[in-house]
Structure formats: C-alpha cells, structure tokens
Design a protein around this nucleic acid. Structure first.
Length: 274
DNA sequence: CTAAGGACCTGTCGGC
DNA sequence: TGCCGACAGGTCCTTA
C-alpha cells in the first residue's frame, strides 16, 4: 500500500491525536509481523510515556519519546486508525496503543509491516542507509546524477531503491517516469541532464499532488479517519494498461520489471537508448 | 561490491 | 460452483 504520500497522509492525520498524549497501555493480539513483536518490552518501554512528536523518514513513521523512538512501517497493507476506546477489534487488528480517550489501532492483513523500538539511535540499521528525502532541497539534479552515473540498472528500479531516494514505490515510480517522459527500462547511467532535471521535478510534483489528494487507495489504504485517498483518480499510467494515453492517445502498455508491474506509453516514453 | 530472485502473508480475481 | 495460479502499495535476505 503505502508509499510516501500515504505515509505522510497517515502522519498528518495522526499528529493531533498522538502528539503530547500519553500511552496508557498496549495490547498485542498478534505478534508476528515482519519482525516478531516483543509485547512485554513494548509495554515496559511505552506505558506512561508521552509522544513528543510524530515525524516521518522515508516510509517509516517515527514516534519520538523521551527515551527513544518507536518505528512503524506499514508494509503493503498496514493501516493505523484512531478509534473510540470501546471499538471492538476486527480481523487483522493486531496491536492497540491505548491513549486517554482513544485507541490507535494497527491493522495489517498481510503482516509485512513493522513495529519496533529503535532506542535512541537515529542511525538504526533500518534507517541509516536510507537515501535522500525527495521533498527536500537535497533531492536535486546534481545529487541524483551522481547516484545514477555508475548504475546500468533500469531507471525505474533505481528510483524505487530506498538507498537512492526514499518514499517512491511502484505507483509513483511509474507515474513520475511517465510525467518525465522517460522509459522505465532506460539504464540509469544513460539519462542525460535534461532527463534528470525532468525526473527530479516529476518525482516532487507527483508526490506533492498525491499528498494533496490524501494518497492513492487501490483497495486497502485508508486514512486515520477511515477515508480513502483520491489520487487514484489522477493516475495516468498505473493500472491503466490498454487505456489511452492522455497525451498521444495510444494504449498504455504493461510489462514486468524486477517482478513489479510496469506501465508506460511507448510513444511518450520512447527514449530507450540502451 | 552489484544485481537478481526468493521469501514473507493473506485476499482477490480471472480462467478453466 | 470450485479449484488453481497469478498478482497486489514493500523490503530483507540469500545467491550468483
């Protein structure tokens, strides 16, 4: 599910409900997420502790406490919602963080998500190798060019590599490459400077627009309030094989690249120089 | 070192 | 209607 726009949507929705609020209890109904949860450790660490801030790094949510940081990654199907205390748990509701008058409930059908205590370390092993945040000044043509020049991998795979630039997953990689007019299979080190410029702008633009729409809901994703994201209506290529390109009116193609569905327009993204 | 593929898990959909 | 394989927003780990 969640790429940067969805995680950011969740963060914005949660902030008012959790910042400066104290955790009274934690209930773990199912511990085997991506990494097994240590319920007793979580309870010991967090009961009575106050969330000082909720930030985001890449696709991780960082709940900052006095003694350290709780990381939550939503994997493919993770959902965090704020609910009245008396709400009965439903299928795949694995963990409750109980606040004074609300519960923050973690639901995850496929259990690829992570909930883990990261201690003090900003250089936790899962965070320390992450690449550039795309919505900062640090993500710019010269730094991207430096990362592309030694890789012959298809540009789409490099764009989805969280050690290069973070937050871009399969939906937004497809959309950004379409917006930039670059073929997904073009080797990274063959992009010319005008293409790199266009790609940087496309990534930023697509992500910002998606955040404005509350992310993209294909099937599972819901905001904290339980609402879907409406960027789905804005998708130009993702999931649109056979439909006509907005620009040239030729059919959108679908292929597999690195085991992931890849959508593109052969006319508008034809600069495939191998 | 880089790159490719499998693994993790559940649900849904299309084809036969 | 039922069964079976393919596929789904991610990322870690193993293998080449």
């Amino acid at each position: 599910m969640p790429e940067l726009p969805e995680v950011e949507t969740v963060r914005r929705g949660l902030r008012l409900h959790v910042e400066n609020k104290t955790i009274h209890a934690i209930v773990v109904r199912r511990a085997n997420l991506r990494y097994p949860l240590d319920a007793e450790q979580l309870q010991a660490r967090l009961t009575g502790q106050t969330v000082q801030s909720l930030t985001r790094r890449a696709k991780y949510l960082l709940f900052e406490f006095q003694d350290g940081t709780l990381l939550i990654h939503l994997g493919m199907t993770g959902i965090l919602r704020i609910l009245p205390l008396e709400t009965l748990p439903q299928k795949h509701d694995h963990v409750d963080f109980i606040f004074n008058d609300k519960v923050m409930r973690y639901n995850d059908t496929r259990r690829f998500g992570m909930i883990l205590w990261a201690g003090q370390s900003a250089d936790h092993r899962l965070l320390k190798n992450l690449g550039t945040e795309p919505l900062t000044e640090d993500f710019n043509p010269s730094q991207l060019a430096a990362k592309l020049q030694f890789s012959r991998r298809p540009i789409k795979l490099v764009l989805m590599d969280q050690e290069v630039v973070v937050g871009v997953g399969n939906i937004y990689a497809n959309e950004a490459l379409y917006a930039a007019g670059i073929h997904p299979e073009k080797p990274a080190n063959t992009l010319i400077s005008s293409e790199i410029n266009a790609l940087v702008i496309a990534v930023k633009t697509v992500l910002i627009k998606a955040i404005e729409k509350g992310g993209t809901s294909l099937k599972d994703f819901l905001s904290v309030e339980g609402k879907p994201g409406y960027f789905r209506d804005e998708l130009k290529v993702y999931g649109r094989q056979g439909k006509l390109c907005d620009i040239c009116h030729r059919p959108i193609q679908k292929s597999m690249l690195g085991q992931r569905a890849t959508y593109f327009c052969t006319q508008c993204q034809k600069n495939l120089l191998k």
